[in-house]
């Protein structure tokens, strides 16, 4: 089975989750089958990502921690949206998160927690990074824009999924630091500029996917304009240190827009309300 086919299956399974949580138990059966396939995929090492072999060594001293982190993400408990896309999982395994984490937080580089990277910004929790990448449903060749480069980790994950990654950072010192890091890691394919992401990428480019990694107070109209028809935008909602939700903004073929909020955790009122 190729990675692409598997990705299709996982997306089919996954895309039903946010709206149809009640079908969770049915999904579980599918997921169990999928776990077996994924396990086989790891064992036989079938490549499913775009750039990892070129940019990162196949093995490094913290690979074990990374595997543990990914294993932890996949074990999230009842009600949590699972990270099941094999390409995303492979990307999370391939990208050495510790290279994007400041020296003083190295110990926690693979903990499932946001970490400070200076200037009040954070490198997002791995679960949120994986989930955003999965929700964006990125196929190779898609043009992806990331608003808020930050540490560069999310950008590097996206670069594992497609060759066309554009990223913008407004905080000058962060932009300089991450640009240098991209050079060091030879991630030259990532197009990075320092600038105000509110207005999107300068020029007339349109994007298949847009990931806004900084929580937004409203959805910027100029960004929506740069989203192609049938495009998807993923935005975290809520405090960056707190309980972040994710939101998907869709633009259909006719240009109609809608949002869909996803809860990492599902609650049901004890009485009343629809169960």
């Amino acid at each position: 089975m190729s990675g692409r086919t598997l990705s299709d299956i996982s997306f089919l399974v996954f895309s039903s989750l946010p709206l149809e949580f009640a079908k969770w138990s049915q999904c579980q059966r599918l997921l169990t089958a999928q776990k077996i396939v994924l396990l086989a995929l790891f064992v036989f090492g079938i490549p499913t990502v775009v750039n990892s072999e070129e940019n990162y060594p196949a093995n490094d001293e913290r690979l074990g921690e990374r595997q543990e982190m990914v294993s932890h993400l996949r074990k999230y408990g009842y009600g949590m949206i699972k990270v099941v896309d094999p390409r995303v999982i492979q990307a999370m395994l391939a990208v050495p998160r510790h290279r994007f984490v400041p020296a003083k937080s190295q110990r926690l580089a693979y903990a499932d927690t946001p970490l400070p990277i200076g200037h009040g910004q954070t490198i997002s929790q791995p679960y949120i990074v994986a989930l955003m990448s999965q929700l964006a449903d990125i196929e190779p060749g898609m043009r992806v824009l990331e608003i808020g480069t930050g540490s560069g980790y999310q950008g590097a994950i996206l670069f594992e999924l497609t060759d066309e990654v554009y990223t913008m950072e407004i905080v000058t010192p962060l932009a300089k630091r991450t640009s240098a890091l991209f050079k060091t890691l030879e991630l030259d394919g990532i197009q990075m500029i320092e600038g105000d992401g509110y207005f999107g990428w300068p020029g007339d480019l349109e994007f298949d996917r847009i990931l806004v990694t900084a929580a937004a107070a409203h959805i910027p109209p100029p960004l929506l304009k740069q989203l192609k028809p049938d495009g998807i935008m993923v935005i975290p909602v809520g405090p960056r240190w707190g309980n972040q939700q994710l939101m998907i903004v869709r633009k259909d073929q006719e240009g109609k827009k809608s949002t869909q909020s996803l809860l990492p955790v599902r609650f049901v009122p004890l009485t009343g309300g629809k169960q």
Binding site: P18, L19, F21, A22, S258, T259, Q260, S261, L262, L263, R266, V268, P269, T271, G272, G273, K274
Partner: peptide
Amino acid sequence: NKFHVKPDNLAFHAIQAL
């Protein structure tokens, strides 16, 4: 729950019940 879709449309159902 048409334009900003929330899981289970909880707010509508909760307000009705309330």
